[in-house]
């Protein structure tokens, strides 16, 4: 499932093309340009998720006589993971506030909390998937489950990529402190994180609430 990695590549120019050394006038331009580029990347990611949502909606009734989502999905776990992800979005916001205060330790701490919440979210998602597979629903069971696993899984992969990226960023901040470059990187990842949160709200509503209730 190289897909989320794939999408991430698009982002790479947004955050990856680092900029070091000299303190020159065009520094600011460079960093703001990268943020702008990342916004554009998010637009393409919106289309990507939009297409997956459309696929899911088209296939939502095609269970081919097999199990339906309503039969197998346990909403309690999903509500917990929703809560975890929403909280992590808040903590990533706090991290940005700490960064603007110039508090390096606070920044790293709140990023770590965010990552931890994200990791728990992923843990719960993996557990849910394992549960579903045990119940007899995998990606090949029917079109419904193909669409379900692909949509939810793509979101999960995005979150996982974000986690690796966040850890890499924490290392960079601890080594280099809060510089225009690391600042921009933190801004971008928090943007990404909020974006994934919004996507999850749609997943939660369309896949779980509307699909299961």
């Amino acid at each position: 499932m190289a897909h989320a990695v794939t999408a991430h590549t698009g982002a790479h120019g947004g955050h990856g093309a680092g900029h070091g050394g000299g303190h020159h006038d065009d520094h600011h331009d460079q960093e703001s340009m990268k943020q702008f580029g990342f916004w554009l990347f998010l637009i393409t990611d919106v289309i990507l998720f939009g297409t997956l949502f459309a696929t899911f909606v088209v296939l939502r009734l095609n269970t081919d006589g097999g199990p339906t989502g309503a039969e197998l999905i346990e909403l309690n776990g999903i509500i917990i993971s929703t809560f975890l992800l929403l909280t992590s979005s808040f903590t990533s916001g706090v991290a940005v506030l700490e960064m603007h205060k110039g508090n390096k330790r606070g920044l790293i701490l709140w990023l770590a909390i965010t990552a931890l919440l994200g990791a728990s979210f992923i843990y719960l998602e993996v557990t849910e998937f394992i549960h579903l597979v045990h119940e007899g629903a995998n990606i090949g069971t029917s079109a419904y489950w193909s669409a379900f696993f692909t949509l939810v899984g793509t979101h999960g992969l995005h979150v996982s990529v974000g986690l690796v990226w966040m850890v890499a960023l924490m290392l960079q901040i601890s080594r280099r402190g809060i510089t225009p470059v690391t600042k921009r990187k933190v801004n971008i990842i928090s943007l990404y994180w909020h974006f994934l949160d919004v996507v999850w709200i749609f997943v939660f509503t369309i896949v779980y609430l509307m699909g299961v209730m």
Binding site: L61, T63, D64, G65, G66
Partner: peptide
Amino acid sequence: INGDGGAHQQ
């Protein structure tokens, strides 16, 4: 078409 949640009803 297998079962009642058939693929092609829509």
